[in-house]
Design a binder for these strands. Structure first.
Length: 202
DNA sequence: TTCAGGATGTACT
DNA sequence: GTACATCCTGAAC
């Protein structure tokens, strides 16, 4: 079985963020089986990281999941209308996570298209097809991910990460070079603003 | 094509 | 009351 286990997540957050590129996020829910290939991630490294929700050890109802065991989903609500999906990393008690910023739609295109634009995939114009899952808020909307899944075990049945394209019946994509750079939307984070904790394909 | 502004609710001060 | 790990729309070019 190619489903990633908690040991994968229980490591250094930067390593996990980099290695998540190319993996498949799978969602099984009311819209059927949806899957997308991870194209972009960001590491949030805990109490020392001014951009991280747990900076300074802040422990609140919202951040509680990050203090728990690795391999769970940390999902929060932002800007009044969007959700963001993270994976909890490092050993329990070390509150770090990886934000999933972008996916390439892989399976369940009709379900994804309906969740995003209320139309079947065939009815989407080119610009809509390119914008299905290419942002943290968009991918949550398109994959039917809400706070109902906060704390969900990523080795469970409704939301998990898969290592192999073959397991999903998909061809193996060509390997691509990985780049890193500063994270998006954290200008407030002083020195942490420029840390190269964002990983993406060139 | 790029850009400014608004939507909207929760968390935390 | 303020800030926020965002996205969409409409106007100007």
């Amino acid at each position: 079985m190619s489903k990633l286990s908690p040991e994968f997540y229980a490591r250094d957050t930067l390593t996990v963020a980099r290695e998540l590129l190319g993996k498949y996020l799978v969602r099984v829910g009311p819209s059927g089986l949806l899957a997308g290939r991870i194209l972009e991630t960001e590491a949030y490294t805990g109490p020392e990281d001014k951009a991280c929700h747990t900076y300074g050890g802040r422990r609140t109802p919202r951040t509680e999941v990050m203090f728990g065991p690795p391999g769970r989903a940390y999902i929060y609500f932002i800007y009044g209308m969007y959700h963001c999906l993270n994976f909890v990393t490092e050993p329990e008690g070390t509150p770090c996570a990886v934000l999933i910023r972008s996916l390439e739609p892989a399976l369940g295109l009709d379900g994804i298209a309906r969740l995003r634009f209320k139309k079947p995939y065939a009815a989407l114009i080119s610009a809509q097809r390119k914008n299905l899952l290419n942002g943290p808020g968009k991918l949550c909307r398109g994959m039917d991910i809400t706070r109902a899944l906060n704390g969900a075990d990523l080795a469970g049945d409704t939301l998990y990460v898969c290592d192999s394209s073959a397991h999903l019946g998909l061809p193996e994509p060509p390997s691509r070079p990985v780049a890193c750079g500063p994270r998006i939307g954290i200008d407030y984070a002083e020195e942490a603003r420029d840390w190269p904790y964002r990983f993406y394909y060139l």
